[in-house]
């Protein structure tokens, strides 16, 4: 019986490990392949967050203690909360500083004129 539980735990942890690392490496590949900053940000902020979060979760489950699992969950929640904030801040800063979208872009409805007022 104990062996069964061990097996299930090992399989769950392995699945999380493989999924997390695949997401992370695809995020890194996206960082390399996407044409401009804003599209790259999609890869980093979504796939990257999910990848690291799954790996943390795998570590928490593997530990087999409620306290550590909760800690890993807290880390995951923190990660999910902060990743969009930093992505948002970086996108806003880059756009206001005047970094352009890729030539493939179809629209840009965010007014650029605002940047003149930003003198810090």
């Amino acid at each position: 019986m104990a062996g069964d539980i061990d097996m299930i735990m090992a399989i769950a942890v392995s699945l999380l490990l493989v999924a997390g690392s695949v997401f992370t490496v695809l995020a890194a590949l996206g960082l390399l392949r996407f044409p401009d900053l804003y599209t790259r940000m999609h890869a980093a902020s979504k796939a990257g967050t999910v990848g690291s979060g799954l790996l943390l979760l795998a570590a928490g489950i593997h530990a087999g203690e409620t306290a550590i699992l909760l800690r890993a969950l807290a880390g995951f929640a923190f990660f999910v909360l902060t990743a969009p904030v930093s992505a948002h801040l970086l996108a806003k800063a880059a756009h206001q500083a005047g970094y352009k979208l890729t030539n493939l872009s179809v629209t840009d409805q965010l007014p650029q004129s605002k940047q003149k007022s930003v003198v810090i």
């Binding site: 997390g20 980093a44 990257g48 990848g51 690291s52 790996l55 943390l56 795998a58 570590a59």
Partner: peptide, 9 residues
Amino acid sequence: AIAIGFIAV
């Protein structure tokens, strides 16, 4: 982010 994943591994 990758370093965090690595530390978890």
